[in-house]
Nucleic acid binder design. Structure first.
Lengths: 259, 259
DNA sequence: ATGCCAACCTTTGTCGGACAAAGGGACGAA
DNA sequence: TTCGTCCCTTTGTCCGACAAAGGTTGGCAT
């Protein structure tokens, strides 16, 4: 059988009933006729409307559930919801791991994305954003000898910056890489003595630069901060060209708390 | 009922059987014990192993199917597969639409992401990449008066560039925005007389710059190219601060061909 | 009348079984 | 060898059923 025969015709696909159920509901949502927060009917109701069996309806609902388009209130009513970034980013991160991307790819993408973020953040950050960053910084300074907590705070720091950029496209674009990238600072803080101090110092400069609306200073320190990660990573004895799978075991543990 | 009571304990959640089935299989995949291409057993086999009903197994499989972790060969055997970027990006794009991101967010993210892409592409592009870009360019030059086709080729052009960057993290990060951003060039080509010509001309310069490994030139023309989109968009009478939902109706049509 | 409790009803999650359709393999005929 | 046919397996769908948990309602005590 030819897997990808370059022929005249596209491969024909017959959608099954449960897929059509899911697609029908999805269309309603995407077209705005079902809005986030609206209830979708009970299963019995959907059975009546679609004229298929409940099992079929349920399989369709599972697709939407995994897509993050619908949610159940504690085993109860089914209603439409906005797919949450975190869940989507999670999936993306997993895909990156499965595709065996290297830390080098992660690093180079982080340089680009975080520089973009900081630039927007300098323009757009509000007082609330700065307050949140300061709170994060205070906690980090109090946790200099706790690599696990520090890595979590580092991840959060950059997520807060992304939020401060007021650009949700950028925020979403950076998140999958960030979920794999920043948690590795745990490793660095653990293995490189001055790692934690350098990290917190860089964060301090970044907050100050954002507060002062100084774009050049912000770019400078963000670049230093990310490049510092690379040096720390190598000094911790890791090869930047290795795939990220190894880190993932711990991440999956972390993720369980988050979900 | 307190929806988000800030208490001592996390909300307890009892995973249902079908979720546990999905998670069990997902763990096998993420841990590498099931590799892409491997077959998962038949439903009957999973029923035996998990000790649950077939309906339950099937609902679990639907979750994995939607996550892109497993696939069915034309209604037949179930096997593990690498989640395809396109499908994930699709979901992300949908989420962006539902969150009503604006064209401005899209535009600003595109500047950052495409500049990052072109920079890596200049360093990393192979002869094959350049050949693919040239082929795209040839088709575009032959379709100057076909906005729909031209928009598709524009989208593909930038996807090829992203591939040429040899950075899959970056490639994945830019795709969701790209799927919403570049198809709008159809609108521009249709409403702005010189739009198509300027687009193709910019692509020409970009290919040449990549071939010449001239990073400055490449950055220059990419910036012009994206800023040109903005001018065209405004000249076509659209407001850059409007949310992207409107464009999505057509996109969902396009997407059906691609999937 | 008001507040509380118990008996209902509804809905989901799970189970068991059933059958048509389609893929795949074995087997025999040309 | 090649081809068609029959049979087995597997999936997609359907039907019916039941326990558990949330919600509702009506009655009862105050």
């Amino acid at each position: 059988m030819s897997v990808a025969e370059p022929g005249r015709f596209e491969k024909i696909k017959v959608p099954s009933a449960y897929q059509m159920v899911a697609e029908a509901i999805e269309r309603e949502i995407m077209a705005g006729r079902l809005r986030p927060g609206d209830e979708i009917g009970t299963e019995a109701e959907l059975v009546r409307q679609f004229g298929v069996n409940r099992s079929t309806v349920r399989e369709g609902i599972r697709l939407l559930e995994q897509a993050g388009l619908v949610q159940r209130e504690a085993g109860r009513k089914l209603y439409v919801c906005l797919p949450h970034y975190r869940k989507l980013s999670d999936r993306m991160s997993r895909a990156l791991v499965l595709h065996q991307v290297t830390f080098r790819e992660l690093f180079e993408a982080a340089v680009i994305l975080e520089l973009g973020v900081i630039e927007s953040a300098v323009d757009e950050a509000t007082e609330e954003d700065l307050a949140a960053l300061e709170a994060n910084q205070a906690m980090a300074e109090a946790a200099l000898d706790d690599p696990v907590r520090l890595a979590g705070l580092d991840t959060e720091f950059h997520a807060l910056l992304a939020k401060a950029s007021r650009n949700r496209v950028l925020e979403l674009a950076r998140e999958p890489a960030a979920l794999l990238f920043f948690p590795t600072s745990e490793l660095i803080c653990r293995r490189v003595p001055q790692g934690a101090g350098r990290m917190v110092a860089a964060h301090r400069r970044l907050i100050d630069a954002v507060a002062a609306r100084d774009k050049e200073e912000a770019r400078l320190w963000m670049r230093r901060h990310v490049v510092d990660w690379k040096r720390g990573f190598e000094r911790a004895g890791r090869d930047i060209d290795e795939p990220v799978e190894s880190i993932f075991e711990r991440l999956s543990g972390v993720r369980q708390y988050a979900s």
